[in-house]
Design a protein around this nucleic acid. Structure first.
Lengths: 339, 339
DNA sequence: GCCATACCTGACATCTCCTGTCAGGTATGG
DNA sequence: CCATACCTGACAGGAGATGTCAGGTATGGC
C-alpha cells in the first residue's frame, strides 16, 4: 500500500506544485501522520521535497526537479536547441520566457545530452535580415501577436501603398520574412497579407472569430509569396546585353529574377546576346532595374519601355553635358566670386 | 523498504531504457521474485511498464512516458515552440530529429500547456530569405556542420570573388543570414567569414583544435556584419536630387544606405536637394546604384564618379539615338525583306 | 532442435514494517 | 490571538513483505 501511495504523492507534487499533508491524506485515504512518514521516506530516497509551515504552507518539489526529460536521442536534443529565435522572441515580448524555458529544458536533459544541446546552441546563429537590411520592431507587433494567440478580432488603420485604410481583421498568423513581420489576416472571407510595420493603429476587440478549418500558415505563406513575387514582375523585357552586361545582370539580379531570366545561347556579330528579363509593373520600376546595367544593355522591347529608356538616357546625358559646358565656360572666364 | 525500492526501479527504468529483473535485483539487493512483485505493483499503480521475455529481454517503460515536463509557465511553453526552424534544420539534416524531439517535447507538456504550445507553433512562421531571395542548400553544409559540432579542422577549397583558394580552417560556428549560410572559421589565429555556397570542396580532418576561449558567435557576427556592410560602402557620393528623386532614393535604397544618407533640408531654385549617399567601393558599383535614379539625380562628387556617369549616360543615349536613326531611315525606305 | 537467458506464478514459512491515535511543539500570515 | 500547517515520539495492533523452491512459457542465436 505504502509504495504505490508514495508514487502517487510524487506524481501529485510534480503536477500540482504545492500540496498540503491534509490534502494528500484525504486523497490517499490515510492519516496525516502517515503522509508525514511518507514524505520523510521520499526525502530519504533522494527526492528533493520541501516543506513550508504555517498558513499557505505545504509540500513542494525543488523547482527544476519537476522537469525531467529522458528519451531524447543525441541529435533530437541538439535539434531542439537549433531552434531559438532571440530576435523574434524579443520582438514578441517573449525573450525572458524563452530564456527561462530553455534553461529549464537544458536542466531537464541528461548530462550527456546537455553538452550536445549546449554545443548546438553556441555554434549556430540566425540573423534574420538579409545584407544591408534591418530587423524591424513594428509598433503594434505585440498587440497583434496577442490577438493572434487569443483568436480575437482586431481593427487596424493601415497604410497601403495607395492610401490609408481601416479594416476589421481576423488575425490568423504572423510571419517573419527577411527581418520584416507580416500578418496573415482574414477580411470578408479571404485571407490577405499585411506588412505589420505599415499598421498605423491597432485596436484589439473582444470578439472571437472562427478560424478557417485546416488553415495552414506555412502553405498560405508559400502560395502568397509566389503570387506576390510574380505580381511584382508581371512583364518581360527583351534586352540586348554585352558580354560584360551578362555578368552584370547576373551579379545585380536577385534569385527570383535570375531563375526566370532566359538568356539566348547565340551571340550577334558584336558578341552581344538577347535576354528575356522579368521586370516590374511600372515603367519606372522596370527602367530603374535596367538602368543599372548602364551602356552594357539595350532594351529592345516592349516599345514603351524602350522609349522610356531613350528619354531617360537622353535627359541624363544632356544634364551631364550641360554642366560640362557650363564648367568649361567658367574656366575660360574670370573666376567666380565666392559668396 | 519496498516503497523506496519501487521509486528506485522507476528512476532506473526512466534513465536506462531496458533493464532486466536480475539486474534490478542485484542493484536493490533483493531477490528476483521480489522485483517481479514490485513490477506488478508499479503496473497496478498506473506506471506503463512493459516486459520482453527471452534473450535480449527485460523491462522498459512505454516510450514517451519516460519524458515528462512540468514546471513551465504558459508563455515559457509557448516560447519553446516559437523556435523551430524546419528549413535550416532540414538543411543540416536534422529535420527528422527536430520533428521527433518536438513531438516528444509536446507529449511531455501538461495538457493545458500543450494547447498553448501548439497554438504558437501553428500561428507563427519564419521565412528566412528576403523577398525575391531563395533558401540556399549548399553542397558542403552538412560536412561543415559536422565539423563545427565535433570541433575538428576542415580543409576547404574556396572561391573568393578574386580567386580560388585552399584553406585549413577551424570551424567555429555557422550563421544563417537572409537565407544564406556563412561559416565563421579560424585561420592563422584570426576569425574570418566564408560563404558556404562558395565552398567548392570540403575535407573533414581528424585533428581537433582549441576553440578560442570565450568565443561568442553572435557577438562576432554582429561585428563582422557591421564591418562588411561598411566595407561595401566605403565612399560617399554627393548627389543632387529632384523632389521625385528624393522619393525614388528612399524607395529603392536598402535600410543600411537609408540610415546613413544625409539629405540637406534646403532646396535650390529648382526645388532640388543635395544628398550624401554611401556608395560602393568601385565606380561600377556606385554608378549602378545611382543610375537607377535616372534623370532625377545628378552626381556632383567625387569627380571620377561624375565623369563615369557622364560617360555612361552619353554612351547609353547614343545607343538609343543610333537605333532610333536607323529605324527612322528604315521607315522612310522600302520595307525590309523578311528572311 | 538445443541452449542460454529472461519473464512468470503459486505455495509456504518466517519476519518486518505499516498504520492510526494521542499529545504536545514550532512556524507563519491575517 | 487565531487558524492553519508542519513536526515528533510513544504505543498497541495489524498487515504485508521477503526468500526459497519448483515448474511453466517465451525468445533469439547457433
Amino acid at each position: 500500500m505504502r509504495a504505490s501511495r508514495m508514487l502517487s504523492i510524487l506524481t501529485t507534487l510534480q503536477a500540482r506544485g504545492r500540496v498540503t499533508a491534509p490534502a494528500l491524506a484525504e486523497a490517499c485515504e490515510v492519516s496525516v501522520r502517515t503522509i508525514y512518514r511518507d514524505i520523510d521516506a521520499l526525502a530519504a530516497s533522494g527526492v528533493p521535497v520541501y516543506a513550508d509551515r504555517g498558513a499557505e504552507g505545504g509540500y513542494r518539489l525543488l523547482d527544476g526537479y519537476r522537469v525531467r526529460l529522458n528519451g531524447l536521442s543525441q541529435s533530437e536534443a541538439g535539434a531542439l536547441f537549433l531552434a531559438g529565435l532571440p530576435g523574434p522572441a524579443a520582438a514578441l515580448g517573449l525573450d525572458a520566457a524563452m530564456i527561462a524555458a530553455q534553461n529549464k529544458l537544458m536542466a531537464a536533459l541528461p548530462e550527456n545530452l546537455r553538452e550536445d544541446a549546449g554545443r548546438m546552441q553556441e555554434r549556430f546563429h540566425l540573423d534574420a535580415p538579409g545584407w544591408f537590411g534591418e530587423a524591424e520592431d513594428p509598433k503594434h507587433l505585440r498587440a497583434i501577436a496577442g490577438a493572434v494567440l487569443r483568436g480575437t478580432l482586431i481593427r487596424i488603420r493601415y497604410q497601403s501603398w495607395r492610401a490609408e485604410k481601416q479594416r476589421r481583421v481576423a488575425p490568423l498568423g504572423l510571419v517573419l520574412k527577411g527581418g520584416s513581420w507580416y500578418l496573415a489576416g482574414q477580411v470578408d472571407g479571404s485571407v490577405r497579407t499585411y506588412r505589420v510595420a505599415r499598421v498605423l493603429d491597432c485596436t484589439a476587440l473582444d470578439d472571437r472569430f472562427d478560424r478557417p478549418a485546416g488553415f495552414d500558415l506555412a502553405a498560405y505563406w508559400q502560395a502568397a509569396t509566389l503570387r506576390l513575387e510574380a505580381e511584382m514582375h508581371p512583364n518581360v523585357a527583351v534586352v540586348r546585353l554585352s558580354p560584360f552586361g551578362v555578368k552584370l545582370l547576373d551579379a545585380l539580379s536577385q534569385p527570383y529574377v535570375k531563375a526566370r531570366t532566359q538568356l539566348e545561347e547565340t551571340t550577334d556579330a558584336d558578341g552581344w546576346r538577347i535576354a528575356r528579363v522579368p521586370v516590374g509593373k511600372t515603367s519606372w520600376h522596370a527602367a530603374a532595374e535596367l538602368l543599372r546595367l548602364g551602356p552594357e544593355a539595350e532594351v529592345l522591347e516592349p516599345a514603351d519601355l524602350r522609349e522610356k529608356m531613350a528619354e531617360m538616357t537622353q535627359a541624363m546625358a544632356a544634364r551631364y553635358r550641360a554642366v560640362r559646358k557650363a564648367r568649361r565656360q567658367h574656366t575660360l572666364s574670370q573666376p567666380t566670386k565666392q559668396s
